[in-house]
Design a binder for these strands. Structure first.
Lengths: 333, 333
DNA sequence: CTGAAAGCGCTTACAG
DNA sequence: CTGAAAGCGCTTACAG
């Protein structure tokens, strides 16, 4: 069932059908009863417009590309859902892809999405992808970064203030009288994760607590479990051991909490704990886990708003850092 | 940078450029050095083909629609990732949408995807959507159901054998000497979930264990936590209480395990437990949780294979029930 | 063996 | 006020 079939049946030009069905201003000139007949025929024959043909003509696909690290990761998946809903409300559909923190894969996804003429892309950018983003920028295809961003670049982004988040977490631990705070973080060059480390260090500095290199442990992503355990063991067995632990991702917390449990460390009496992000098991752990909660809803909404505004060429780059929220549990004392 | 721009620069027709860049058989007739010049020019000017224009002509978008219950749900998200990768390998991209178990939303998503001319759709169908699936079928747009299916319908599907999964779980509990087995399931009309209940009942029947209605508790989705607790309490406080529990979803298990922990029930001594699906916390729980594991990888691959085969109009409807796997932990005794 | 031309299904500027 | 025609950017059947 094509537009021109309806036109033939009703006895008008396809232009007339197009005007009426799209409620184009030009439809005003079509007679009332003819317009009605067009609508009725379209409904009866269950006309389904070909969006591809329309897109070719209008140069708009009403499709947003979404590149996440891994859609199977709950953080990505939740963000994806929020963006899906926000986009849908504006008539957009979402094409997604997972980059696996791999710049080549990200580049491949960007290219695929360009070929498919997405109107804009929301990207949780991987490390070392500045160059390809500059390239994307030079092509004039709107994009906005989410969760990740690059210092010194002028790209649009929506992220949380990672620095402030860990700064405040450390402050909370200090206010509970803990001064020997261990940090378990990821070995990474991703700026937003480094910001978490910086928040830890500067909070200690501000409160004149000496920073002990032995209390900072960075673990490589591919040996997460063993390295988290090893790091915690070292911190616990130091001459003057730690009295608190801050985990900068939920996976680090998962392995860390298990290690603490195995060693029969009592939380928060022996060690106070603060984790990053959400996780199912935070509620199921023997003591509820104090954690830094990212405002996923706001993050997704802001990114979608931003990309749709840039698609409409309204306004300049949005660069937003949203505050994270410290959710108090029993684990921080 | 358009095809015709390259044609103009090289001094050939756009047809020639199209043939060469697509490695069309017809390209054989283009002279070696001309072909080389076309390729070189395309690379130098960074030509990016417009897939929309190609799709309009070829009537293929190389896009698969994926309708899940909720992309934020880890089950959906993991399936999505597997499908993404499998589809990508065949040159397909994935457009997704969440139906929230709502037939109207599902219908809306199907319509949107039709308008966008997806080549086929993979659908985790919601209850009561048979009619709209028949409608989709009559339009000739290929689709395959995943995870869910309808008895008596001839739609293609890829799912697990839910009946056998719980049948075997009950058999395991019986083999451990447990005969008073409680079932906590969802109040639902979704066939694949009812199959889980049937597996429980028939396993008991086969072993001549009387089925006690008091040991079967169905909870409505909107009052999960309270109802799971209430149901378990009743089963524990019965005159002859249960000695084992089977949870037919991971969320039910989450709330059930917490309830058992709060009541200081020792697992598996007092109550043996088997859960459905995976969850992070299965590993973190004081005793590791025996659970029925769905073969997500095979599920996603089979669905993608199936839809791509149907798009190519090769073969008839695939109707596959894959076996689930019982992952032994300490909780089942 | 080659190239010009038609056509995919729409939208919309333009001539009457 | 109306309708026929051009055109979006490709692919490919067809005439020379």
């Amino acid at each position: 069932m094509l537009l021109k079939d309806i036109a033939k049946i009703v006895g008008v030009s396809s232009a007339a059908v197009s005007y009426v069905l799209n409620e184009h201003p030009m439809a005003a000139r079509i007679g009332k009863e003819v317009a009605e007949k067009i609508r009725k025929t379209a409904t009866e024959l269950n006309y389904q417009p070909n969006q591809i043909a329309r897109s070719l003509k209008t140069q708009k696909t009403y499709t947003i590309g979404l590149i996440v690290a891994d859609i199977a990761n709950p953080f990505s998946a939740q963000i994806a859902r929020i963006i899906e809903d926000a986009a849908k409300q504006q008539g957009y559909t979402v094409l997604f892809g997972s980059s696996d923190e791999n710049p080549e894969k990200e580049q491949g996804l960007i290219r695929t999405m360009m070929h498919r003429q997405v109107d804009g892309i929301i990207i949780a950018a991987v490390g070392h992808s500045e160059e390809q983003l500059h390239d994307l920028e030079s092509r004039g295809l709107p994009f906005v970064l989410i969760d990740r961003y690059f210092p010194g670049e002028n790209f649009s982004y929506v992220a949380i203030d990672n620095y402030r988040a860990t700064y405040e977490a450390v402050q909370l631990l200090l206010s509970k009288g803990r001064t020997r705070i261990g940090l378990v973080s990821l070995e990474t060059e991703l700026f937003h994760l480094l910001e978490r480390n910086r928040g830890y260090r500067e909070a200690l500095e501000t409160h004149a607590i000496p920073i002990q290199p032995a209390f900072q442990h960075s673990v490589p992503l591919h040996r997460l479990r063993d390295e988290v355990e090893a790091g915690i063991s070292r911190m616990l067995e130091a001459e003057e051991p730690i009295d608190a632990l801050l985990f900068t991702t939920n996976l680090l917390a998962l392995h860390g909490l298990r290690a603490l449990k195995l060693r029969q460390i009592e939380i928060p009496r022996d060690i106070a704990v603060i984790a990053f992000d959400e996780a199912d098991f935070y509620d199921l752990f023997p003591v509820s886990v104090t954690h830094i909660s990212q405002p996923l809803e706001e993050l997704g909404l802001a990114a979608t708003d931003s990309i749709i505004r840039e698609i409409a060429r309204k306004g300049k780059p949005t660069q937003v850092l949203l505050p994270a929220r410290l959710v108090l549990g029993a684990s921080s004392g």
